[in-house]
Structure formats: C-alpha cells, structure tokens
Amino acid sequence: MNPSIQLRLYASLNRFSPRDGADYPIQSGISIQELAIDLHIPLDQVKLIFIDGQRETLETRLHGGERVALFPPVGGG
C-alpha cells in the first residue's frame, strides 16, 4: 500500500487542492518541492510550509502519515 499524507492548501493555494487531499497518496521520500510541482503549484507562491504543525522547507522529504500545510504570502488588512 502506498504511503499517503493529509494535504491542506490555504488561501490562494486552495485552488490547487487535489480531490483526495485528505488522504493523498505519495511516493515515500518525495520532497515538498516535488510535491508542489506535481500539483502545478507555482513554487514562488509557497511561502510557508508546515509538517505536523512545525515549519519546514521545500527540501523536506515526506514518508507518509504527515499532515502537510502550505501557505502563500498573506498581507491583507
């Protein structure tokens, strides 16, 4: 069975959300950057990355079971 993650894309990234984001299959060892490219998310729009609530980077690799949240820059008031 393929590993999977819980993927949440916030604000303007939400439009890139896959239908199966709640249980999104990945290849073990895939980086956040590779995941974003697969989902056609422009990398310059990925400003904040949290894995299980901790801030991480585009280079961080996933192995399944993680909660992944991606945010664009947000500055409105």
Binding site: A11, P72, P73, G77
Partner: peptide, 21 residues
C-alpha cells in the same frame, strides 16, 4: 522573516490581491 522571508525580497502584497479581503 519567518513568515514572509527576507524583507528585501518581500512583495508589496500577498494572496489578497487575488482573493480580496
């Protein structure tokens, strides 16, 4: 800078330009 990165590279606005407020 933990949220927006290096201030020298920060854009003027963020996702609100597309989504409104």
């Amino acid at each position: 800078k933990q949220i927006y990165g290096d201030p020298r590279d920060a854009p003027e606005k963020g996702a609100e330009t597309h989504l409104g407020t």
